[in-house]
Design a protein around this nucleic acid. Sequence first.
DNA 1: AATGAATGAGGTTTCATTCAT
DNA 2: TATGAATGAAACCTCATTCAT
Lengths: 190, 190, 190, 190
Amino acid sequence: MGKPARRRLQPEARKLEIVQAAERLLQAHGSQVRVEDVVREAGVAKGTFFLYFPTWDDLLETLRDRLVTEFDTAYPLPTEVEGPIDWPGLVASQACAFVDFTLSRRGIGEALFHSDFAERRPLAHNGVLRIAAVIRAGQEAGAFAPVDPDPTARLLFAAVDEAAHAVASGGDRAAILAALQTLLRRTLAP
Amino acid sequence: MGKPARRRLQPEARKLEIVQAAERLLQAHGSQVRVEDVVREAGVAKGTFFLYFPTWDDLLETLRDRLVTEFDTAYPLPTEVEGPIDWPGLVASQACAFVDFTLSRRGIGEALFHSDFAERRPLAHNGVLRIAAVIRAGQEAGAFAPVDPDPTARLLFAAVDEAAHAVASGGDRAAILAALQTLLRRTLAP
Amino acid sequence: MGKPARRRLQPEARKLEIVQAAERLLQAHGSQVRVEDVVREAGVAKGTFFLYFPTWDDLLETLRDRLVTEFDTAYPLPTEVEGPIDWPGLVASQACAFVDFTLSRRGIGEALFHSDFAERRPLAHNGVLRIAAVIRAGQEAGAFAPVDPDPTARLLFAAVDEAAHAVASGGDRAAILAALQTLLRRTLAP
Amino acid sequence: MGKPARRRLQPEARKLEIVQAAERLLQAHGSQVRVEDVVREAGVAKGTFFLYFPTWDDLLETLRDRLVTEFDTAYPLPTEVEGPIDWPGLVASQACAFVDFTLSRRGIGEALFHSDFAERRPLAHNGVLRIAAVIRAGQEAGAFAPVDPDPTARLLFAAVDEAAHAVASGGDRAAILAALQTLLRRTLAP
DNA sequence: AATGAATGAGGTTTCATTCAT
DNA sequence: TATGAATGAAACCTCATTCAT
């Protein structure tokens, strides 16, 4: 019946525990998760939470950064050094990777990118920047049409994101991915 | 000595007053509007609100339906009767209309389509259905490529919506619309 | 075991109930009383409290106003109409009344006038104003020395207040009041 | 790899560092200063604070004692040895000194003598004792009226304190001090 | 003696919803 | 139909104090 002994950790370790607890819950229950839930899951006191995250939104921001970094690490953009790049193929594979990554993180994406939080703390989305960079590079290589990189990247990312959303909510994965690939290829084809 | 009984209205008239009050406020202040605010603006008692809308989300749903209907009415799809249809032009003009319509309704769109409400009460979005219908009809007329109508419509709508969002948050209207037109034309071109 | 039925009152009546509950508790337990305690004592929900007092300090302010008004009503300053005024006697009796009044309200005075609240929400104290008025009137009647009314009133009120404090915390009432009377008389004597 | 152990100091030296840090902060920010702030200012760990002061109130008590001692040292009461004493002048100069001393310590006085702390930990105030002693001595020298020393001292101190308060909060220093001198002189005059 | 991560009870406040009138 | 006083769970956040290291 006694309470578990107080565990003293390195700040980074403790912060990580909280973050991971939050990820588990967000994945399972979406954006209705509260501070209360996270501290219970992490096995820490409420005060501990606010020691590391002054506000709830600060936690979400940390999660967002982690998610972005995680994707960038898992699916890095190739460098020319490794050989000539198949630009259309790169776009296709990255898009596909994004969909699958989102799928594996379900609720988190919703809570971070399609909730009120996203409105409160907007972010020059990393995905958009990546696409813009790829478009520019591909254009220099003569592999893409001279579309306006920035706005086009933004629109394409929206399409990719929607594809992920659609698959996540039970759509026909093959059909959606096919439509997405067509859209990407045709939009960028020289 | 009690205050004069509130005038009795036709239920529909009363409901409309509330709805319009909500529209005004949502447009001005986005998703942070509360029941309290709406009833004050509408000049009705709090209880009256819940007489017409069992929950807050029911009001939002009503607003969403109205918004959709309003757009459909303002920008109806042409019928063949009126003459031959310029399919690419139709898509372009509808997309442009959507962006402008969204712009004129600012906060409402956010509150209805990009908030937690949208997650709680998803909707087979009307905009998607319209695009799908146009794609199908255009394909029959030989004006569009044989893309898969439903998933493609969904992705295209996401792009259109993002364009609206981008313009609303201060993006370069001309550049964004141009990129959108390019994306639409290329994706559907035969 | 059932909860007591919801009682619907006129706003003023309900507000009064809360105020009186607060007075009872403040009198008994001083400035450590909390919103939680007041609502329990008043038999209302927490939300009801904030319906009438946006913040805790607003309640204290209401209590302060009531206390001041109560004293003014209980011990009104005489008007010349009622006959010639015994100025030194008036000062003496008002001072004495103040001490007794404070005594009968114990903890309330502490919580309102000697706590952090008093620092947060200072008030041109009513007691000071009364004394200043009496000094001026008495001077015109030739009954008091030509002391500077405003600062003197402030100092005299501090003395009166301290006397009340002293008696309340167990001092020798007779001795303290005698010393107070001497101080007042000598300070104002022509 | 741990950080170098904190230098060990003589306990009294360490305690003094904390006390002085607290004085600086209290002077600047009044009673809203927190333990957190003090330890940061003192450059010690939170636990260290509670090593020297079991509770926050214990620190305040220490500060209070220091403040009192400081005043006594800065403005010592003269002994007869030094020559005949000008009793009314002594009272006047001490009162004036007190006001100026308080003024130079602003926030500290508020936090120690006019806050909830003062209620929680009352103190037979030193200032009162000094005045009482002066009254008694002056009476023996035939320079003061036969007022009751203890209660009178208490009331006079309240007046002096209020004068300090009044000046500190922006009152007319000259007028207030004049009124105070008059009050003191008249109350004690034989 | 010293640290600073951890605690958790306690605080104020919000607001969709209920219900006596 | 209409009212608006009342509800109360739940939210976020604070901070003096504890204790493993």
